[in-house]
Nucleic acid binder design. Structure first.
Lengths: 190, 190
DNA sequence: AGCTGATAGTTAGGAAGCTAACTATTATTG
DNA sequence: CAATAATAGTTAGCTTCCTAACTATCAGCT
């Protein structure tokens, strides 16, 4: 029986057995997908535990990085160049980039503001909108946190050689494309 | 700037640029990890949307499958063989197998019981424990749902050939092993 | 100018995750 | 046997996700 994301992944033979009862079950597909989900879950757990140790959650970290990315673009832009339009700073833009709803983003910004990482300001042009800015505290936090964060990433992927990483990226891109197609047309799975 | 799980993955060139400021950042490691997390997220989204369409969440589905697995083992066992000991049926066992806390499992079982999918019974041997059982409604639901569920899995992984799936599983197993090592010894990342 | 429709951020309620604490039960120790 | 420690499931509170609805503001149309 294939069981999703369980502590112990089912062995391939179990999948073959289950395929006898369920003709729709493709053993190698199930095995590959389970491994994909499970490995990602494990990698995510390693990374997010490091974040947790530093008092930040993955979601909040993503918001901080997005805002920081905006700041970096501004800092690199030649004087007088208007670059604000392309960097997210409103709750809606942040939500869109993070792939969450505006309602969820409100909560994330709430806790970030509460902890002194961001400030909300009314937009001067459109009174419906807020503008979200990083505080100095957040920049300080990121500078102290990011080196270790990247080292964790490197440590995780040190299991693979450069060539293996390239192969992995290529295969994953194929799966990703397929998922995008399935999300556009769910009927394709039937 | 590498940004985790954003709508658009950063291009490799952006990672090279960022590596100039952060020597701890390994571009190919970051790229591979981001692709892994992103692809898994997309695959998970396709699968869980199908579940949502059928009124079940991934977490609840996992509980049902675990209990169902226990039932299948019982049904396959020769008469008189005591097999209950190896199949999870208490909230703690279910939680352990799902990788969540007992507190979380209480909530999952609550809603499953509310919707008529499971029944709680006091354990006859140990008064501290409950025993969780599938209802006929749950078995009926699974029989109707599983074929389509497996077809989705096959559709997702149809992007890869059998050989490519084998390569993917091999690479993922390496990463998985590394994650397990890092979780045992976080200092190894520094 | 006034009305209607669209938009942004927030609120309310629910689900699912966590931690810490709790109550009831069982196991262990002296 | 009594006291202490361990265990199981639940509760309370928080965070993060969702949907639907809301209020305030802006845009478009007549």
């Amino acid at each position: 029986m294939p069981l999703l994301l369980l502590k112990d992944l089912p062995r391939y033979e179990c999948l073959l057995e289950a395929a006898r009862e369920f003709p729709d079950l493709d053993p190698s597909a199930a095995e590959a997908l389970l491994h994909l989900l499970r490995t990602s879950d494990e990698a995510y757990a390693v990374s997010s535990r490091n974040m947790g140790d530093h008092g930040i959650s993955p979601g909040r970290f993503m918001v901080l990085m997005l805002l920081w990315h905006g700041d970096q673009i501004k800092a690199a832009a030649p004087a007088g160049t208007v670059t604000c339009a392309c960097s997210p700073h409103t709750p809606a833009e942040l939500a869109d980039n993070c792939g969450v709803t505006r309602a969820t983003m409100t909560g994330l910004i709430d806790t970030l503001e509460r902890d002194g990482f961001v400030k909300r300001e009314p937009d001067p042009v459109d009174r419906r909108m807020m503008s979200v800015r990083l505080t100095a505290k957040a920049e300080e936090f990121l500078h102290g946190f990011l080196p270790g964060h990247f080292r964790i990433h490197s440590a995780i992927m040190s299991a693979l050689s450069e060539a293996e990483r390239k192969v992995l990226v290529r295969l994953l891109a194929k799966v990703q494309q397929q998922c995008a197609a399935l999300r556009s047309d769910p009927a394709a799975a039937t």
